[in-house]
């Protein structure tokens, strides 16, 4: 069973670059341009997804809503936020899920290594926990 990293971002090159970097890090990555597509894949595939890197501005819904839906359906999923907005701040209910400012990554990421490290750390903690 492979643990997947899910990337939701409408900007193709961002999506692809993140996917490439994380794959080079030896992680299984699934990338989608919208939350709807991601949800479809999650329902169809039996594979479990540990970590999700979520963009905030998506074509079908905003990132916060997507996180709430994903969290409801897959309570074990961990989220990292990757946003181009400088003024983004975490809503309270997301904080209640255990998200904090350390989970926020501002675009542009000049170096993806810290993000990759965070993903790895979350994925491992999820594997150990149960």
């Amino acid at each position: 069973m492979t643990s997947w990293v899910l990337i939701v971002d409408d900007e193709e090159m961002i999506r692809e670059n993140l996917k490439a970097y994380l794959e080079d890090e030896g992680l299984g990555v699934a990338a989608f341009e919208s939350a709807t597509h991601a949800l479809g894949w999650l329902r169809d595939d039996s594979a479990t997804c540990r970590v999700c890197i979520m963009d905030m501005r998506l074509p079908d819904m905003d990132g916060n809503t997507a996180i709430r839906i994903f969290h409801q359906l897959y309570p074990e999923m961990e989220f990292l936020i990757h946003t181009g907005s400088s003024s983004y701040s975490l809503p309270e209910d997301l904080r209640a899920m255990g998200l904090d400012n350390d989970r926020i990554y501002h675009k542009p990421l000049g170096d993806m290594a810290p993000l990759a490290a965070a993903v790895r750390a979350l994925a491992i903690s999820r594997e150990i926990q149960p």
Partner: peptide
């Protein structure tokens, strides 16, 4: 920031 991200990450 998105295109910059593409440039930098790319």
């Amino acid at each position: 920031n998105n295109p910059l991200g593409a440039i930098l990450q790319g």
